[in-house]
Design a protein around this nucleic acid. Sequence first.
DNA 1: GCTTGACTTAGAGCGCGCTCCAACTCCCAG
DNA 2: CTGGGAGTTGGAGCGCGCTCTAAGTCAAGC
Lengths: 120, 120
Amino acid sequence: MTIAQVSECTGLTAHTLRYYERTGLLLQPPPRGGNGHRRYTERDVGWVRLLTRLRATGMPITGMRRYAEMAREGRDTYAARKELLEAHRADVLARIEQLRDDLALIENKINTYDKLMGEL
Amino acid sequence: MTIAQVSECTGLTAHTLRYYERTGLLLQPPPRGGNGHRRYTERDVGWVRLLTRLRATGMPITGMRRYAEMAREGRDTYAARKELLEAHRADVLARIEQLRDDLALIENKINTYDKLMGEL
DNA sequence: GCTTGACTTAGAGCGCGCTCCAACTCCCAG
DNA sequence: CTGGGAGTTGGAGCGCGCTCTAAGTCAAGC
């Protein structure tokens, strides 16, 4: 697959894909065709999709890089990788809880507008 | 109240409080004491606390500024302010849903590590 | 042979939301 | 009178995650 196709099917721009590669987020830099263009595999796409989920849930680039580094080291890091993901899951769940709390206050405010408007 | 006290009880730094004021997020700039220092009221604190909830739920500064502008205009904008908050609520709920989806994929990944490690 | 278009690179630039700096004023305690 | 601490200002700087630019290469189609 070309970079444009991967861009298409992951939602990341070609720029971002190259940036991710430069910054060490890919398992390995995709090999090049005769013209020097990157050639991605389905497996690369799967990996990038996982990256997008991690990003979407707020994992910083440095965290994703640590995860990628471990993934490159192979089976020995299964436990560590799982722990990293579990810690991240805990973060996300906590953020969702916090979001609910904050939203509750905002909903109170919405209700006060209802009351204020009812009085007019 | 002094800026330090407001900082203390809202969690924002004095720097950030001044920044919020400069950028038009306060209902009005707090009046100054004889020494030129800002004097905040309890009402200011309540307002800042609302701002922090809006920020925490991802409302951009520009959105908060629009909200503050409307609040300065008085009763006429009740409906518009309520709509703004409702739109924001919808955003946040959607984001929570998205977060859940993304998290589900990450949890799958955690489970695959369990399986992979079980095979060792 | 020339154009077009998809790709390549190194490196600069950007938008957001702070965060901090330098230089200053003011007030109070010792 | 001095020092310290809390505040003031305008404006610069920062960290993150992209995002884009400029200049170049290559392959295919006319």
